[in-house]
Design a protein around this nucleic acid. Structure first.
Lengths: 342, 342
DNA sequence: CTGAAAGCGCTTACAG
DNA sequence: CTGAAAGCGCTTACAG
């Protein structure tokens, strides 16, 4: 009923008339030199002919390395995560690792359950895209002392390496751009303050408007319920309800900006004619919106790649210094921002 | 340097003063009833206290089940695949399986290499989103007789179960809609003919226009180089170059439709005023485009879920009938289609 | 109901 | 350079 009986080290050794430990040495490039060249060559050829694929599960049991990395995602339908995953996967694969990815949502109990499962599967390390600024799951990982790195979102304590975009700079780019266009009344739709991205971007917004000496009342912040489009629409309504005179909005991410578009459409507000919007992330296809979204591009793919590199380093040497990586974002000016009407 | 020495069956058995086979029976719900209730309870409590997580790699070596499913993706940056992956992952997780996902691109040699790696990792089955109508990699999988199911794209021979959307119906919905609006000169931008989606949608288009008795010359097909946005732009240029009188385009997918938008923008063509467009897939956020894209919604999430269910059935019983699943698509009318100008 | 034993397919000191 | 042996952490017939 099932796959043709898989051939093993021993089968191959029998055919080659050598001890199976010799075959083992040949199959592993690192130990191949221990075997006479002619023998190695012969065995390699036979392995190829027979389609011998060493059982990595068995090897992993012996070496205590699974070659598996657990990737914990909060929301795979958010387009930011696809390129991050692609970046991760690329470098992991190049080193013979493979990601096991689980989409867990925001529930901490479930995250912990999943991480337990992953540890049961002997993952060599964990990449978390789910971290909150204070995160019990992260505490748990630290206690277990399993190699972990965070991606996109960090924690406040900095116990664990993380790879993030420079959110302060990102918001400053956004605000500088708006101010340069002539805006003085600017709103910010913040992401959840429990997430480092939400918090840092908000702080970045505040320090940027202060730098430009905007007075209290000229700027305003509303925190969205989450990073989704619908939450953005609601926050936009609240923001403009509180301060109808705003001429520009810096959104905490592109989905929130999309929610602003939705609100504008409902209310017949022109963009950028009536109000300007800047997003954050430059997620796929926001250039195809009308107006094309001005946004802060973060290096998502690179973020994934760097996180994988950091994790691999940590797997190789758990004592390595906790170094984090902060990637520089870039302002992408498109059609959703213009000088204010008045 | 590394994680606190992981505790094993034997450690736990020593503490509980029973044989470790007893502990094994307790840890597995299916064999728990073989052990006296009070003993089981005591062991369970101790396991919990000590944070014992059975080593699934070791168990897998013994049982010859890894609980791993390989997922082979052609292009993770295409937004269709995120919901498919989410659907897959959801049902796999509910059954104690976990996906290992690799983004391989279209290269068949690399696909085969990756599949070899996955088989070396003892995956219990494979989900391929990379299938072509004639696919050497699929031949290889069949020869290895490893459980496989295809998702989104099928093969011509139908040797392997697959879960796809009904592409013929999808194109008919699109064409019927356009004809109902009054269009008689309709172009189709086809995806690659080597892919079942490209081929079937093209055939669906042809039979739909014939049903409506459009004459030769009233309809036209151009095949895009791939399913990407840029290829769509080029194909749109070619299509309108060959037949400037077209009043509507049925695109092979949303990305191709997006490419049409790009071309229209370049050339100052109004949509839907000058020309109407229908997409396919209803990928995330095409409702936020201007005009919002009329498209054929395919049940992506469900597609993933069904594929996982099929695979699990096949893993349980390799002799099971090869049943495929064809999901019914749905037309979503939005702003990119309108009656022709003349 | 519980224990003792074999074995899954590898890796890697240890000899020679 | 090659072999013989132990052992990674489990599961599961087989006894009792």
């Amino acid at each position: 009923m099932d796959q043709r009986k898989r051939i093993t080290l021993k089968d191959l050794a029998a055919k080659a008339e050598v001890h199976y430990s010799t075959v083992s040495r040949v199959m592993n490039p690192a130990t191949r030199h221990l075997v006479a060249d002619d023998v190695a060559e012969r065995i390699l050829r036979m392995a190829d002919d027979l389609g011998f694929r060493p059982n990595r599960i068995a090897a992993g049991l012996r070496t205590r390395r699974s070659g598996l990395v657990g990737v914990v995602l909060p929301d795979i339908s958010n387009p930011v995560f696809a390129p991050i995953l692609a970046g991760l996967e690329g470098v992991l694969a190049s080193q013979g690792y493979v990601p096991i990815v689980v989409n867990v949502g925001a529930d901490k109990a479930r995250q912990r359950f999943i991480i337990d499962q992953m540890m049961g599967r002997q993952v060599d390390g964990l990449i978390l895209a789910t971290a909150e600024r204070e995160d019990p799951v992260l505490d748990y990982c630290v206690r277990q002392s399993i190699p972990v790195v965070m991606v996109n979102r960090g924690e406040d304590l900095g116990r664990v390496p993380c790879v993030v975009s420079d959110n302060t700079v990102g918001m400053r780019l956004a605000v500088d751009h708006l101010v340069t266009l002539g805006h003085r009344r600017i709103g910010h739709i913040a992401g959840p303050d429990s997430l480092s991205t939400g918090h840092q971007r908000k702080q970045g917004f505040i320090s940027a408007v202060r730098r430009h000496k905007l007075r209290k009342g000229e700027w305003l912040i509303v925190e969205a319920a989450n990073y989704g489009r619908e939450a953005g629409r609601e926050a936009c309504r609240a923001l403009l309800g509180q301060s109808p005179g705003l001429t520009a909005i810096a959104a905490g991410n592109d989905l929130l900006a999309l929610g602003c578009y939705d609100h504008f459409r409902e209310e017949g507000i022109a963009c950028p004619g009536g109000i300007s919007v800047v997003g954050h992330n430059d997620m796929p296809f926001v250039d195809a919106l009308t107006p094309a979204l001005t946004t802060v591009r973060i290096a998502v793919h690179e973020m994934g790649a760097r996180a994988a590199i950091l994790l691999l380093a940590r797997i190789a040497d758990a004592g390595a210094e906790v170094a984090s990586v902060v990637l520089c974002p870039q302002l992408i000016v498109r059609g959703s921002t213009a000088p204010p009407a008045d």
